[in-house]
């Protein structure tokens, strides 16, 4: 804008000097028209995306905030209640339990996925015979839909008729284990099912990282007589820092949104021992029909993830810088 004004002034001065009044103004007009035209075209290109984006993303976010300040059942008149819903949160045991459940899952799933994802990637990268087969075997579970995945595991894990207990029985375990009925075992079951389902995805990310490491570094280490372990520790791991950060971010974001696995495998139980935050939002909103309170809990999820993203962004920038 400033530059344009200056240009205009210069032109006016010049035109005054040369006593040509019309020509520069005309040129200026053309310029302004061009920028208007450019704006119009840009918005024509942006319009379809922005329409859907504002409609289904920005508007619900803002609407959700206002809803969180009200009380009243779905479809009923809403009453402004200020921060009441947020105050209610503080003393809501079920809310804290579900928040902890979500954080707990993030804490147990992220490191295990990083470790096992890396192991699988190393296997596929090791140039063994049958690498294509191995890669397919590791990746295939990721192609299943969440319901198929959950149903396979529920039927494998269920007592009396489940596959796992039958095998354990044949191995001499006489006790009937209720994998999904015990608080700790239920979490282990959800974790194992999630690992089985998503390791292939993370393996692919690690694989890309492994293939970016230059062969020369390993060759140099070979000349120095480095052991395989030393090579892994001093070359492979440091080179994978970026990918590890990425997997940690993707995985923790996915784990914060945990819903399908407990919903389909344990129903959040036993009790509410495996009920994550998203399921609590779902139940508040669509079973108890309390959209105001559900929106307040949604905003907590939103806030927790934003804080988390900020921390990770800082770590990422630090690592790359």
């Amino acid at each position: 804008m400033g530059a344009l004004n200056r240009e205009q002034k210069d032109m006016e001065e010049q035109s005054a000097k040369h006593k040509v009044v019309h020509y520069p103004q005309k040129k200026n007009k053309v310029k302004r028209n061009e920028s208007l035209k450019s704006n119009a075209i840009a918005w024509a290109f942006l319009f379809p995306f922005m329409l859907l984006y504002v409609w289904f993303m920005l508007y619900p976010i803002i609407q959700g905030f206002f809803t969180s300040l009200t009380t009243g059942s779905f479809g009923m008149a809403r009453e402004f209640s200020g921060l009441d819903n947020y105050v209610r949160l503080l003393s809501d045991q079920a809310f804290w339990q579900s928040l902890w459940n979500t954080v707990y899952f993030v804490l147990i799933s992220t490191p295990t996925i990083v470790i096992f994802g890396l192991i699988l990637a190393l296997i596929v990268n090791a140039k063994l015979k049958g690498t294509t087969f191995l890669r397919s075997a590791f990746f295939m579970p990721y192609m299943l839909s969440i319901s198929v995945m959950a149903s396979i595991w529920v039927f494998i894990l269920q007592p009396y008729t489940g596959f796992l207990n039958a095998i354990l029985g044949q191995l001499g375990v006489s006790e009937e284990i209720f994998w999904l009925g015990n608080e700790h075992l239920a979490w282990i079951s959800i974790l194992v099912a999630t690992l089985w389902w998503t390791l292939g995805f993370n393996m692919v990310l690690f694989l890309a990282g492994l293939q970016d490491i230059s062969e020369e570094m390993y060759e140099a280490a070979d000349i120095d007589g480095a052991s395989a372990w030393a090579k892994f520790w001093h070359i492979t791991l440091p080179s994978l820092k970026g990918v590890v950060t990425l997997v940690v971010i993707l995985q923790s974001v996915a784990s914060f949104k945990l819903f399908g696995q407990p919903w389909l495998m344990t129903g959040g139980g036993p009790g509410d021992a495996t009920r994550p935050l998203v399921q609590y939002i779902y139940e508040l909103g669509f079973i108890q029909w309390d959209p105001g309170y559900a929106s307040a809990v949604s905003y907590v999820l939103f806030g927790v993830m934003a804080i988390f993203a900020a921390i990770q962004y800082k770590l990422l920038v630090k690592k790359e810088g």
Binding site: T67, S298, M305
Partner: peptide, 10 residues
Amino acid sequence: MVPVEATIVP
């Protein structure tokens, strides 16, 4: 950064 899960109610 916005989880779709947080906007399902509205």
